[in-house]
Amino acid sequence: MTDDMPIAPKHAPLAGVIGMPIAHSRSPRLHGHWLRRYGLAGHYIPMPVMPEHLAEVLRVLPRAGFVGINVTIPHKEAVLALADTVTDRAALIGAANTLIFRPDGKIHADNTDGYGFIANLRQQAPDWQPDAGPAVLIGAGGAARAVVASLLDSGVKELRITNRTRLRSEQIRAEFGARLVVYDWAQAGNMLDGASTVVNATSLGMEGKPPLRVPLDALSPEALVTDLVYTPLMTPLLTEARARGCRVVDGLGMLLHQAAPGFERWFGQRPEVDDETRRIVLG
């Protein structure tokens, strides 16, 4: 090392995202943008971690200067058992996407996916009324559980849910209560009758995946339709819903908003989600 080489701050906080695979993650681009925007010392690093190494990695990271991490597939459920404290919403959802490493090395687990989902709706559709009519949820995976919790908490009175495997929908209903109504996958189109909010929480419609083949004949032009998929931004579902006169909300904002609470805890600055942020993350 030469004398004129820049020296990184000794205590610059480190954060990152773990998953397998991880190369596709847009989180490093997002957090890097916010660090530069606010002139903050710190780094955000993508880290591929195999499931069998998860516990060891979580023990080491706090000692290596990390203040926290984001967690993605396949670790979002497993980290709950390894955390010292778990928020009520992470426990309810059964998964965590945000870990905070405390100065004493203890791990605090949270789930901000539901927060990100609702924040995205309210930003892109400020007049959205959760109690205007039944909500429809297509899919019953991990992301769907966060959507269920956030929609019920927002005041949705009836939530219709369907999944290719009905048992998963039934399990969610058993946990979240009588406001959920389960539909068979073959009857998914019937759920849309009278619905004011429609959410796709499956990967169908994503680039490289089959399209979501739910007939939209019963969809009201007054409904708001959103898709958790953001590659492409305008999925076939959103394109068809817009053609029918519906308001549509793409899924990118959920990714951006769910990241904000963790960034604030790790780096001490609440970041703004705006058009520039969207452009940077889209590249």
Rank of each mutant, 00 (worst) to 15 (best):
P103H: 07
K106F: 02
A96M: 13
R89D: 15
K106P: 07
N111R: 09
P103W: 12
A109S: 06
R102Y: 09
T98K: 10
N111M: 05
A90T: 04
I118P: 11
L92I: 02
L99E: 03
N97Q: 06
G114F: 04
Y115Q: 07
D113Q: 09
F117T: 15
A95K: 08
I93P: 07
G105K: 11
I118C: 10
A91T: 03
G105H: 12
D110Q: 13
F117D: 13
A119R: 10
N97D: 05
G105N: 13
R89A: 00
R102Q: 15
D113I: 07
A109C: 09
A91S: 05
F117P: 14
T98W: 12
Y115K: 06
A96H: 04
I93W: 02
A109Y: 10
I93E: 00
D110N: 14
L92M: 09
T98M: 09
I100G: 08
T87L: 00
D113C: 10
I107N: 03
D88S: 13
T87M: 01
F117G: 13
F101M: 00
T112L: 07
D88F: 00
F117I: 13
H108G: 03
D88A: 15
N111F: 00
I118E: 11
D88Q: 15
P103C: 01
G116D: 10
Y115C: 08
L99A: 05
K106E: 15
T87S: 14
G94W: 01
D88P: 07
T98A: 15
A91Q: 12
D113T: 05
A109L: 11
P103F: 10
G105M: 04
D113M: 10
A96N: 04
I100E: 13
I107Q: 06
F101R: 01
T87F: 03
G114L: 08
L92A: 15
R102H: 11
A91F: 01
N111P: 09
K106T: 15
Y115N: 10
F101E: 10
D104P: 02
F117Q: 15
G116L: 07
I118M: 14
D110K: 11
I100N: 14
G105V: 11
A90W: 00
G105W: 10
F117K: 15
I118V: 11
D110Y: 06
R102S: 12
D110F: 11
R89Q: 11
F117M: 14
D88M: 11
D113W: 02
A95C: 01
K106G: 14
I107E: 03
A91R: 12
T112H: 13
A96C: 12
N97T: 00
F101Y: 02
A109F: 09
A95H: 03
Y115S: 11
F101G: 09
